[in-house]
Design a binder for these strands. Structure first.
Lengths: 140, 140
DNA sequence: TTTAATTATTACTAATTTAGTAATATTTAA
DNA sequence: TTAAATATTACTAAATTAGTAATAATTAAA
């Protein structure tokens, strides 16, 4: 049976990275190498995701030797939805919820409203869930 | 920006087909041609989806000349989730919810529980939503 | 000043999935 | 016997995902 998920591996990895960074103090910077090793993500893929998080203003970075990354804001202020969005994929329950979608059905289709309603429940929940609730208690 | 949906076009089309069939009495049989034209789905794709609905025991079919298909049960007893499942794609919010997934993280990952909880809310809702609420009021 | 270690950035690739088409077999009313 | 319909399997192009490769830019330390 074919499988389909709403979130990609990249979304999952972005959440891991945010949750891992949230276990450190703001003045500690963590290398991509450490993130990659501890979170079981390839180094290059980790670097790319970390970069996206920085573009989204979720992480900051110190470049150069002994550089690394850190969360810019307290994890209490960072939601799961924020991190999901930083990856830059337009996530919808169904295609008819896309911004420029025009439904080809001539008579009223009530599914649109249902999809919209269900999606709203999902997104509102992900906005409420803060990364501070998902901090990894790993051996440092 | 790349787009991603939980449901595919095929899921959407399956729902259209079920909702369209629900607007007829049980003794009326509707041809794939009619479904295809009214619902703006290619004839062949329509036939394939209709076939899947029959395999899932959602529709019945009368073969041969003047044949067609019909809903086997009242639309009040048919949920959106039933129709989604008939398409035969294993739908999950996140990959870690798949049956044989083993998480590679050594320390506890709390996201799994959250994904599970959110997915349950979504699926329970889709089970509650009956096709009878989505009947198309088209010009027959 | 040079080197090493690190993040930044863009381009590429193989595998998978989706969305749809093509072709043919089977069934049944007329 | 024929025509019109569903049944069934196989194929295909485009898009997406997940990941790799390569190189540039930056900065602490030797």
């Amino acid at each position: 049976m074919t499988k389909r998920t709403l979130f990609t591996r990249e979304h999952d990895y972005a959440l891991r990275i945010a949750a891992y960074l949230a276990s450190f103090n703001k003045d500690e910077i963590i290398s991509v190498n450490e993130l990659s090793t501890k979170l079981r993500i390839s180094k290059i893929f980790t670097a790319r995701i970390v970069h996206k998080l920085r573009i989204a203003n979720i992480t900051g970075a110190v470049q150069g030797k002994y550089g690394g990354v850190f969360l810019k804001s307290p994890a209490e202020n960072l939601s799961v939805w924020d991190v999901i969005n930083a990856v830059g994929t337009d996530i919808k329950i169904n295609e008819c919820l896309n911004e420029h979608y025009s439904c080809e059905l001539l008579f009223g289709c009530k599914f649109h409203h249902m999809f919209h309603s269900v999606e709203k429940i999902l997104i509102d929940r992900l906005k409420q869930e803060k990364i501070s609730n998902y901090i990894f208690h790993q051996i440092k």
